[in-house]
Design a protein around this nucleic acid. Structure first.
Lengths: 244, 244
DNA sequence: CTTTCAACAATAATCGATTATGTGTCAAGC
DNA sequence: GCTTGACACATAATCGATTATTGTTGAAAG
């Protein structure tokens, strides 16, 4: 099993983005399931909007109902699964409107968190940014090797979270983490490659450099544009596939 | 069992603030437990930070473990309960920093949602506001009758949610609902009465009137002040009780 | 007197079986 | 032909018992 980026923080239980924690076979079955299900949904393996049959899932994953429900419950917190009493679980649907809301809220919240970080972040935080940036830029996405995509996604997620991790606001970080999760799902499913007119690596570098230089307006604007472009890009891909 | 305000929306499953739905004994045990536990936590009956012993809780509520976990899982989504593998559940702690973050985020998100609502809200939405306002202002808090407090809290919550319900952004509403929940907990636990120099009813009326008049700047500012004052007020009470 | 480690007690996690609920189908009545 | 209701089937929810993990205590070693 490959190493993963931070996942579903229970509450204020944000995992340190830097830690090289290994997911041993130590965790609870419910936890492991949460990971696997999340990956299955974000990767598109489980189709958006589809019903999750407990009995089938139980057999697929070779587990009992209790941990299965446990795992699903966590994905509900993440907004990746929906639930109704006596009607069971279903993979959260996707839509243009949803994507647009995610993008808009990211522009608001992530930028706000970035400004706060630049205001009160410490040197430790700055260093973490540069490290995340370096790792991200050294990793290529190779569409022919899915594991590299997954790896890149993890590093990308970590970069964005690190960027705003200096703000000292657990709840805000939690919200941003959720939005990032939801957004990544759209990218994983719809984005084979970045549109040619963008140099994403460059964009990340500019954001990072502006941030550690505490150039508030510059960094904020760069981040906002970065998020906005990604949103536009994804929206086009959705339109192509006829998603409303 | 008294009627309740909207509770823990699973995902985009926001309950209509207006509906006079009765919670029959129809729901799932897990659902009912979620309600009861939420009330127990928000009311302070379950002490902040305290551990939740599954076996004891199971006996207290006369249920089996499965629905108990189910209910607790939902409160995790709400940020009212924290969880760690193999270590169980605990009531989310409270702190000055947490309260301040909640207040700050409410100022950002709720005001943002209000502006969006004023931008695109329809007549139906306006009408709902006036109705919620009326119901709220017609209800008094009587410290000697706890059920009136609970009733007032429900209506207050509904008013604030209705105010921003015109924005057409389910995720944003979800976040605001969470923050409101967390905030209400502080009020329920620490606020015996409003500080004398405030006329909260008046504040609500001003916000509502400004909103339906689409006086964007006025309404936004009034709402922000309202939230801010409540935050300050609560902070003082926390300080009095020595909460750090 | 402190540290280590092993047994025990307390607690959480999981399982398989059982019960309750929702859903689809077919026949009788209109 | 269309609607209604009862039955049967599929599925979700719950239970009680079992297993795994954690934490605690106390005796032995240093």
């Amino acid at each position: 099993m490959s190493s993963k980026a931070t996942g579903s923080p229970q509450t204020a239980n944000e995992e340190t983005p830097s830690a090289a924690f290994s997911d041993d076979g130590k965790n609870t079955i419910g936890s492991q399931l949460a990971w696997r299900l999340r990956e299955a949904i974000i990767s598109g393996e489980l189709e958006a909007g589809s019903k999750i049959n407990l009995d089938k899932a139980r057999r697929t994953f070779n587990v009992s109902l209790s941990p299965l429900r446990e795992g699903l419950a966590r994905l509900i917190s993440d907004g990746l699964v929906e639930f109704q009493d006596n009607r069971g679980y279903r993979v959260a649907p996707i839509s243009l409107a949803n994507l647009e809301e995610i993008t808009m809220l990211r522009e608001e919240l992530e930028v706000f968190a970035l400004r706060e970080s630049m205001r009160i972040g410490d040197v430790e935080w700055e260093s973490n940014i540069m490290r995340s940036l370096h790792r991200l830029n050294r990793t290529d996405r190779d569409a022919s090797r899915p594991e590299t995509l997954e790896q890149w996604e993890a590093l990308h997620r970590e970069f964005h979270l690190t960027l705003i991790s200096g703000c000292g606001k657990p709840l805000l970080l939690h919200f941003c983490g959720l939005l990032l999760n939801l957004n990544d799902r759209y990218r994983r499913v719809f984005l084979v490659r970045t549109s040619g007119d963008r140099n994403v690596g460059q964009e990340h570098s500019e954001i990072a450099q502006g941030t550690v230089a505490r150039d508030v307006e510059y960094a904020s604007e760069k981040l906002r544009q970065h998020i906005h472009r990604t949103g536009t890009n994804l929206r086009n891909h959705l339109a192509t596939k006829g998603i409303v």
